[in-house]
Amino acid sequence: MNRPEPAPSGAFPAAPPAEKPMPIIELAGVSKRFEPPRGAPAVDALRDVTLSIDQGSFVVLLGPSGCGKTTLLRLVDGLLPPDSGSVRVFGRAPVPGPGMGFVFQSFRLVPWSTVRGNVEFALAGTGLDRAARRERAEHYLELVGLARFASAYPGELSGGMKQRAALARALAPEPEILLMDEPFASIDAQTRELMQAELMRLWALRRSVVLFVTHSVDEAILLADRVVLMGPRPGRILEAIEVELPRPRWRYDVRAEPRFIELRAYLWNRIRELVLSDENSDFFGRSRDF
């Protein structure tokens, strides 16, 4: 069904060769501007962003605060319309639903539902019956190590546990596309490594598309097929770097690989330059020696 047509009419002038997979997510010349309620100048959250993501690839968005990473995910999920340009998911304007899972930067758990209830909430559109939804929720809670807290309310969980609950909620519908907005940011270092490995393992099994946002250079290189470096004001894509490190990366000490170290140094410098040279950044003009 998703087999590319030989010559799609007009939409994509350069029709992809038949053997090349059709892009699942396609952003072309996308801009998004926010008008603050009063006074403050408009913010170009994204300007002229073009990005295309193939089936089964793991793409990490990396960039300093305010460069439009979250906005990009919201556009892809169809939660927000672009001002100009086009956003296509599976060749159509995106519609939010169980086909795409979103892990939000803030956990966004429903406080009056149990952890299990929160996960089941995301399964409403999947067509599963009650028992199957329950079973599915339990399975993913088990996976993130929260089985014992299924009946707890989010208020009783620690920050890291909340994040894992939110992760289970996004994974449970087994979406074709996973949008993850700094999903491991508030998890402790040990659990974070476990969750990263777990995510890679899951992804190796199901090969969904993952669009993953992080501030951590290490995390980006560890996980990504492609790291997309973004810059702020206006939010835009600066460059995309393929990470060819062999998989599965949890099987060996990937951080010791020369390519990892090289990429890490390069990305660190790029981001530091970005922050220090951005006159609107909170750190503009600081000494470059620190």
């Binding site: 803030s106 966004r108 409403a124 559109g125």
Partner: peptide, 10 residues
């Protein structure tokens, strides 16, 4: 934020 979360689940 919760409303948006709910929207994202469809």
């Amino acid at each position: 934020e919760l409303v948006e979360m709910a929207r994202s689940t469809g």
